[in-house]
Structures are given as structure tokens and as C-alpha cells.
Design a protein around this nucleic acid. Sequence first.
RNA 1: UGACCAAUGGUGUAAUGGUAGCACUACAGUUUUUGGUACUGUCUGUCUAGGUUCGAAUCCUGGUUGGUCAACCA
Length: 560
Amino acid sequence: METKKEQLEEKPLLNFIEAKIEEDLKLGKNNGIVYTRFPPEPNGYLHIGHAKSICLNFGIAKKYHGKTNIRFDDTNPVKEDVEYVDSIKEDVKWLGFDWAGEYYASDYFDQLYLWAEQLIKEGKAYVDDSSQEEISKNRGVPTSPGIESPYRNRSVEENLTLFRKMKAGEFADGQCVLRAKIDMASPNMHMRDPIMYRILHAHHHRTGNKWCIYPMYDYAHGQSDSIEGITHSICTLEFEVHRPLYDWFCEALHIHHPQQIEFARLNINYTVMSKRKLLQLVKENYVSGWDDPRMPTICGLRRRGYTPESIRNFAETIGVAKRENVIDISLLEFCVREDLNKRALRTMAVLDPVKLIIDNYPDNQTEMMDAVNNPEDISAGTRKVPFGKELWIERADFMENPPKNFFRMTIGKEVRLKYAYIVQCTSVDKDEQGNITAIHCQYLPETKSGMAESNRKVKGTIHWVSAAHCKEAEVRLFDRLFAVPDPDNVEEGHTFLENLNPDSLKIQTAYIEPNFLDTKPLTKYQFERIGYFCIDKDSTTDKLVFNRTVALKDSWAKGK
RNA sequence: UGACCAAUGGUGUAAUGGUAGCACUACAGUUUUUGGUACUGUCUGUCUAGGUUCGAAUCCUGGUUGGUCAACCA
């Protein structure tokens, strides 16, 4: 452990973005300042892919003693909503990050408009009356040049008049647009006179009805970065072809020019990451909502029982690079187990119960057994667990005709009831169909935990709850949402929905220890030998509801 | 038949001209009152063909493969 840490400190491993930043720092760029931003569009909930970006942007700023803004890219009023800005802020905070400034692209609409007039005056932008179809057609295709618009060479005065009329609301939606005059023959489609402003008579969640023209992403994003003094504008790979345009606007306007750096977005197998598809899962009720614990959204993971630390550690572990990647879901699961192992209090719960009767144990006797709350953290203390003649144990912890490597309960062999006694199984009761209805055993009184005889070597230890004292709880057992590693990979005429896992949710009634339960939603437990669970928000005083975050590793189940 | 980007074990990610390392996964073992945790070990890798060099995963050229770009979306 110590040596690992030392190695990391001696030789810090930089991702390619950090390497670039250190180079800039060495060169004295930006006066030694590092300023990043996280720029979501408020049109959906944040998912684990955004978490990667958030951890990257905030992490880098922290590492180089800089700052990070949150900026909502709200240039398209038809798609955006305050519901989303609220959830986004909540999720970023929950992940553990504080932004230096909270801004909106719409804060800059006035400045953007002024800059547009400036570009018109310099002959670098023009109003185009072409229809959407014409513009699209004349743009050409990547392999052959486009055709210049017939309106491309209007006079500055005419363009200015027209643009002001656009702003004044004298035109209908779609009647004309403002375009940058760049190069219709560029091999980069984004440089073929990109649209700067379109007419949208729509109500904006922040600017209300002040505007009926709205800037496009390419015209707004770089300048917003510039206004905020961002030094490194980190975005995903698909914006790589936009970079020449990002640079063009900053140069044409002679404003502070942040450096755009692109990295590969996160993909995880057995799930989907596109906002559109996540929205569809919610809208068409394939899941219960954005925070359904099976969703890869931040709020879904939170409800599932993931901790901010585990997600941050995941983001750190997957690294940052430019190549397309698909992360194995087992890495995410590893990260949450690693974290929960250290902090989750243990309790015993039986999910698939069968009655165990200790025939030689006194009727109506109850003993309080000492149990350790967290073996990884002695300061978590101990608790008392009631024990009696009749217990519930897991059906899978008994086998009548076991294979050689079965360590649990079987007739004639000894097994330890955790924190209690060693018992020896004697017989089973069965119904007419041959199903086991109860298991009988004898306990060895001198093997109670803590007594000398309890140190005896026993191959297996199983968990239990007292039938007379236990509580009932609903447990929701989640599995991966999709049945195949790459749900998006579907044949013509099929959709990703067909790859949904029909068994992604199983609901069971469990019997659980009565003591020490904190029933506040999101409280995390390890059900011993089963997995990590947390209290769901649906939980009430009458009815406990647990979500399974992730099962414990089970090398026994694997070997079968 | 364009431009841009990328290619390192099963999955990710380092090595910045000098011994291909780390994590996850898988498998094997030690410890264990959780078949968990912890610890130890094993398997598996530089897309390809040339070139530069004493030396190439790294630099150059060609090829191959994958990704992105033709919304008045971001």
C-alpha cells in the first residue's frame, strides 16, 4: 500500500490533457492560470459519462490551483428547461464539486449580438434568405465543395438592416439566418458558412421573450469560454471538427482565445449513454424515471446506493485518452464494492428463507449475540442480535446431496451460525412435492461465540435471523438493464429496446435483523454474505424497502 | 471515394528514442466466524509493411482497421 503511494508520488502519471497543461504552465501561457468549465445543455439528466467530464474538469482545476465554472449551454429554448438545470446542479454538488461561477450562455446574448454586428460590419457575416433545404443542399457533401449562397455578397448595410429586423421580430421562424462568411469549399463541413443565428419565436427559460433570434452552439460556446476567461476548454471527441470554427470566431473577434481539447467520451457495456435513449426509456416507462436505480444517470446511481467517492474513483481509474473505449461494467462495480466495504455497516438478512429448528435449544429462550458492525472499521462497534430456537436461513445454504466442495449445511456435518453456535444438521421436513419445509439441527452449547470451544475449525459459516424477532423488508434486486454488452448494436429494423434485460428487477421479501437499523433513505448496509444494499426513498416506517447496489463477489456461485 | 482523429493483453490506461508497467477481469493459492475483505502468484499485449537509429510502442512513409463530420441540435 505504502509503496504504491510512494511510487505515485515519485512519478505522477499525467493524462494527455494534464501533460498539455503542464507544458502551457512551463511556457507561461495564461499567466499560469488554469480555468475550466463544465458546460451541460439543460435538456436532460446527467449520467455517468458526464461524471467523467465533471471529474476531469473540476479535478484538473483543483490539481493546478485553478477554478471551474458551471455554464449551462442554453442556446436552444425549445429543448431546454429549468427542471434540468436544477437536477444538474444537484448532481454536480452531490458528486462533491463546487463551481467558481454559475453562468448561462444566455447571460451573453447581448454581447454575442454585438459581436455579430461587428462581424457583419467587417464583411465576415451575412444574412441568408435561403430556405433550410437550399442551405442544406448547397452545403454540398464532405467529398465535394458546396455552392455559395446567392445572398452571400450583400452589402454591409443591407446585412445590418436585415439582421436588426431579424432581432426585432420582423421575420417568421426560418425565414432567414445569419451566417459566417468563411469557405464553401472547405473540406471541413463546419467551415462552409456556418449558421450563427436562427429565428426562433420561443420562450426562453431565463431570457423570457426578450429574444426571437438565438445563437447556434458554434457561435456561442467559444465566446462564452472567452468571456469567462476559460483557459482550457475540454470537450468530447465529436467536437474535434468544430475546433477550426471555435478558433475562427475567437480570431475574427480578436478576443481571449481558450484552447479546446477533446477527449473520448465514456462508454460502458450493458448500458446506453445517449441522452435521447435515456429519455426514451423514461418517457416510454421502461424504467420508473430518471432516477430508476438501473439507469446510468447520476441520480439513478445515487438511488442505487453508489457513493460520490466510488464514482470519482471510477472516473480516475478509467483514465482519459482520445481513443474510443468501452469500459467493463465490472470496473464500476469494483469501485463501489471497494468503497462500501470500508464504510457499510453489516447486518444479517435472509432473502430466500427456509426454517431452521434447533431441536435441543430451550423453547421460548432468547439470547442476545454480539455482532461486529464492520470488521473493516472497529470504531463502528458491535450490536446485539436476538437468537432463538427457530431461525431463518438461506435455502441455498443447505444441500441434501452436496458436492465435495460444499462448505455449508448438510445432514451430519457441522456448520457455524455466525456470531452464535456451531450446529449439526440432523434431518429435514418435506411436503408432498418433496420441497424442504424445515431443517432440524442440534446446537453445541459450549461453542457459543466467545467461548473456548467456538475456536474449533468449521468449514462453513452461515448467516441467520431469529424467526421470532426479525423484520420483513422488500428488497429490490437489480441486474444490468440490458442483456447484451452492446445494446446499440442492432440489425436494420430493430431497436436497442429489444436488448432490454427482462430480469433487470426482481422484488423479494426478506427477513432482516431487527436491531440498529437506520431507515433514512440512502443509508448503506452490507447484508452479510449477500451484497450491498441501501434504503430506498419508497421506504416507510411500516414497510422497509432496500435496493441492492451490487452483490458481493461470489466465488462459490461462479464455480458451480 | 474528402477532411480530421485514433490504434499497446479480454477491458481500460502508462511508458514522451533506452528493461512494455498498473488497474479491472479470468484462473490458482494463503488468511478468514462473510466462499466477502486482505495478501501472493499465473495467463494474456505494442494493427501491418517498410524506413531513420547503436537502439522504435514512441519518429517518418505507405497500407489496414475503427471513430467523427453533410440539424436553422449541443
